[in-house]
Design a protein around this nucleic acid. Sequence first.
DNA 1: GTCTATAGCCGGATAGAC
DNA 2: GTCTATCCGGCTATAGAC
Lengths: 183, 183
Amino acid sequence: MSRGTRSGTREEILDAAARLFAATGFKGTSLQDIAGEVGCSKAALLYHFDGKDAILTELLAPPLEALATLDARLAGLGDDAVQLAAVEGYVDLVMRFRREVTVLYDDMPALLQRPAFAGVQEMSDRLLDALAARSPDPAARITALMVLGSVPVVCMKPTEIGDDELRSILTRSAARTLDLRRA
Amino acid sequence: MSRGTRSGTREEILDAAARLFAATGFKGTSLQDIAGEVGCSKAALLYHFDGKDAILTELLAPPLEALATLDARLAGLGDDAVQLAAVEGYVDLVMRFRREVTVLYDDMPALLQRPAFAGVQEMSDRLLDALAARSPDPAARITALMVLGSVPVVCMKPTEIGDDELRSILTRSAARTLDLRRA
DNA sequence: GTCTATAGCCGGATAGAC
DNA sequence: GTCTATCCGGCTATAGAC
């Protein structure tokens, strides 16, 4: 990690912020709320982070990095293989970062405008393209968009079944939505 | 309508609020923003409405009423017919109230807690149940959830194709997601 | 490294003139 | 019916003591 010091408080703050942001949204969560959850003062938060935005940015860094990795991997695939790989990679990505995705979803339109998230829109567009098997057909692009929206909704709800089964159901159902034939 | 006076300003305010709420979210939109868009003062808004919440409530009343209607209709159907009817009814509902759905989506968790939206959660649950053909199977409930999430995402994005074709694609793709056999 | 105190801003809402 | 002026509150963020 870039910061050598592992104070522990930093992680506590990040964890509390993640929970609160996911529950009540970024705009809906105040520094006071986070401080209360952690058990410290607002000023203490602002010692550890440069501001509310910095907390969010650090929180979302890992999933964004994972998205970039997926993006790069998909770029190297042919039009046939890319669709299935996109489905599996996307489901995996969203499931691994459920909590962060919930945060992102809450204030999405406003968040995407921030400089820290430059490039996310482009990667999303390419992911959509991959899910549509790079077809320009409007129907294909719409079903791809449906998949893009359907996966997070499921992952944001707590479910009674295990992660492995959930992942499997999501992948198969998304493949059906896309009318994706078995390889 | 309950108010006899058709001042015109009221509608202007509702329209501007709808656009802004959809673009930047409910919490992300201030009365000043709305006033600026309409070309009047904050106080003028608060003459016409009892507060920011009242604007939102009035804005969302028609789609909520439509949801209640759909809910009642589905309640009278058998387990076989209900699934297809739910898909078609839901797609139709979301498409008819695109803008309002966008608003709802933005601050959903917080909004659902409000007293004005009592019963919405229950209706959503019943709609989910109908989309799952009232099956208790976890996989069926998950695909139903996927449909619930996929339709709004598409309707929120502007598309180049016409509404009729969009509706048709959405219905067919959702049916595929649910593995719904043709009637 | 964490606190208290406070500055400064912006939000929603009210009072009262016109 | 719409405005101006103002209040009160919560928010982020800073300054400085400990």
